[in-house]
């Protein structure tokens, strides 16, 4: 119990529960299976990238280029499937392959030049995105193939609401779950996952990790290619959700994703963060955004409220940590 109260995740979970109660009290439509599944579907895009960001943050890095990676992967994928045909497997393969390559470029730059990861990724964000705009001319792609459209509407199971409209667990959510499970397995049960926490936990001086026999370059290659992988998947998922490919529709969402992950307890200093926390962070922001409309809060207030929730949650957790760190001395009774 004591350990549970020390965990950041507990606080985010409580915030999610509290928010759910408040929103439901004001609008009972919130706590329905249909709305729940809709939220799951619509936040799977950010959720997938959040998993990649989590892995980067654990390793002690910060990446903001992932939105550009997702955009490039998505755009090239869309060009190929509209111009030549293909199928959903090909679509994912193209986007993921591009994600892996661009991730590798990030990893190489970070390792060989030993530049702070955030600086590298600011640079690559602009290069990747800039080149895409140069070569695409910023053209939007509106008309994606029918099979692409159909795949987006696939449901794992289907229910019907009171108006007889079908809803259910979207295939897109299933893809997100797949990414979650993959990351969870890697983080919990592999030596690679352990190495990741170790590299992130030793801060700026990677000496301790090296002395433990960890190959830092290999860890970094994994981290940034995994980020690239999730970005590629997310790119396709976003196209599935929106059915329009616009080069400027993903870039700009970096901070939303990073905020969700940090909200979930990952540390920008590295070494800390869990899948559960990240999911809770994503849910908290999604429910918040969803709930504000359902609670009929005027849109002018959205940014203010979301900012306040992030600040409250992060500072509550920091306060808890500080309380623990304060040296306590067993003072002799008089």
């Amino acid at each position: 119990m004591r350990r549970l109260m020390q965990r950041h995740e507990t606080y985010v979970f409580l915030a999610v529960v509290a928010l759910t109660i408040v929103v439901t009290a004001l609008n009972p439509n919130f706590l329905t299976m249909e709305n729940f599944l809709d939220i799951l579907k619509s936040c799977s895009f950010l959720g997938i990238m959040a998993i990649g960001v989590l892995v980067v943050l654990i390793s002690g890095g910060v990446d903001i280029s992932f939105t550009a990676v997702a955009t490039v992967g998505q755009y090239v994928m869309a060009v190929v499937i509209t111009r030549y045909t293909g199928n959903i497997a090909l679509a994912f393969t193209i986007a993921i392959a591009i994600g892996l390559v661009l991730g590798l470029i990030n990893a190489a730059l970070i390792y060989f030049f030993n530049i702070p990861t955030i600086i590298v990724s600011i640079g690559t964000l602009n290069v990747f995105y800039g080149l895409l705009i140069v070569f695409s001319g910023g053209k939007w792609i509106y008309t994606l193939p029918d099979w692409f459209h159909k795949f987006a509407e696939t449901r794992v199971f289907t229910l019907f609401n009171s108006n007889g409209i079908p809803y259910g667990l979207s295939i897109v959510t299933l893809i997100w779950i797949f990414v979650i499970v993959l990351a969870a397995l890697i983080l919990r049960y592999t030596v690679l996952g352990r190495s990741l926490y170790a590299v992130g936990g030793c801060g700026f001086d990677k000496g301790p990790a090296e002395r433990a026999g960890i190959n830092i370059f290999r860890v970094q290659v994994f981290v940034y290619t995994f980020m690239g992988f999730t970005a590629g998947v997310a790119g396709v998922v976003q196209a599935l959700l929106v059915q329009t490919v616009a080069p400027n529709s993903i870039v700009g969402k970096e901070l939303n994703v990073i905020a969700a992950v940090v909200l979930g307890g990952a540390s920008l200093a590295g070494g800390a963060g869990t899948i559960v926390g990240t999911l809770l962070g994503v849910f908290l922001l999604a429910i918040l955004s969803n709930g504000l409309t359902l609670m009929r809060v005027p849109s002018y207030w959205y940014d203010v409220v979301i900012g306040m929730v992030i600040l409250t949650s992060v500072s509550a957790s920091a306060l808890q940590q500080r309380r623990e760190q304060q040296r306590a001395i067993a003072v002799e009774e008089a």
């Binding site: 439509n29 919130f30 895009f45 929106v242 616009a246 359902l294 849109s299």
Partner: peptide, 22 residues
Amino acid sequence: TRIPCGEDQELSKQRTLELLQA
């Protein structure tokens, strides 16, 4: 009040779903 989502298709879709419930 007017909702700021018109430059983002995904967000517009999300906001519409929410409006339909609210």
